[in-house]
């Protein structure tokens, strides 16, 4: 069968029922906009967490009064641990110097110190592949077991809390997204049912002149796919505008977010949003046709 006939029928039907189709495209667009917003947040937060995890450094503190020979030995031992990339020794004096530089705006806070209160430490950076929680915890435990190293830290507590929050956020997103998709499919199938109801005589005539069910269904499938495609593009368009406004606003603020480059959806994710819209549109058509053509 010629595909152009089906497209012609689908487009003619869209023209005849403009209002219904605008509502359907709007519904899909709105649902996908919410979906895409979640995706953009997930993608950026994942990227942020990833970059934090890549930058994770373990700081191993050294007891006071350890001689250079012992420091060299400890550095050698630390370098020998699996997953360790680089070990840099920071003496107590250097640590104080860094603190002074970081607190230069706070003026003389550190001026009254008679003695350096900071311990010397090793800053340990990790291999790129060595970023899972369990391995890092294991490595920290082993470092803590070393003599002359009373403590080692990497800020795990807040990162753990953040990861828990993130997984909760993801789950809420999935549930909400699923519900929204369900609502969208319901609305689409009902809109198509309204169109079918308005065209019931025409459909009867088509069947009487020998049209197969597939011949009748295909234009409706095309309508569903087109509605999904348009809904997807509309949602991406609106999201892009909102994103641009958001980015221009945060670049004007002094938020720490400015250290991080906020990204729009990748090409793959944009394609996913559009394909998801098309699937929703198509599924909505299938559902209504199945019920309607049963008669």
């Amino acid at each position: 069968m010629r595909i152009s006939v089906f497209f012609k029928r689908a487009l003619q039907d869209i023209r005849n029922n403009r209002f219904l189709h605008v509502i359907t495209v709007g519904t899909i667009g709105l649902v996908l906009l919410i979906w895409a917003t979640f995706i953009i947040i997930f993608a950026n937060v994942n990227y942020l967490v990833g970059s934090w995890q890549e930058d994770i450094r373990i700081v191993a503190y050294v007891v006071k009064g350890v001689d250079q020979e012992r420091i060299d030995l400890l550095q050698k031992q630390l370098r020998g641990f699996y997953g360790v990339n680089e070990v840099v020794f920071v003496s107590a004096d250097e640590a104080l110097l860094r603190l002074r530089s970081q607190m230069r705006h706070q003026g003389g806070v550190l001026d009254g110190l008679r003695e350096n209160p900071l311990p010397a430490s090793f800053e340990i950076s990790l291999n790129p592949f060595f970023h899972d929680q369990k391995s890092i915890n294991g490595l920290v435990d082993r470092i803590r077991e070393l003599k002359d190293i009373p403590d080692a830290q990497y800020g795990q507590a807040w990162l753990n809390r953040f990861l828990v929050f993130l997984s909760f956020f993801k789950m809420a997103g999935f549930i909400l997204g699923g519900l929204l998709l369900f609502i969208a499919i319901f609305i689409i199938s009902n809109t198509i049912k309204l169109t079918l109801y308005a065209k019931r005589e025409e459909l009867e005539i088509m069947q009487l002149v020998g049209a197969t069910k597939l011949f009748i269904k295909i234009p409706f499938y095309i309508q569903g796919l087109l509605q999904g495609l348009l809904g997807g593009l509309v949602s991406l368009g609106i999201l892009y505008v909102l994103f641009s406004v958001f980015v221009s606003r945060i670049s004007l603020t002094e938020l720490p977010l400015t250290y991080f480059h906020v990204r729009f959806l990748s090409k793959d994710l944009m394609a996913m949003v559009v394909v998801l819209g098309m699937l929703v549109g198509w599924f909505g058509s299938c559902l209504s046709l199945k019920k309607f053509l049963k008669v």
Partner: peptide, 20 residues
Amino acid sequence: KLIDTQTVFQNIALPLEVTA
């Protein structure tokens, strides 16, 4: 049983369209 929203041509063409 003619389709009111379609022209005379489209109405008559329908049985031929369904047979491709």
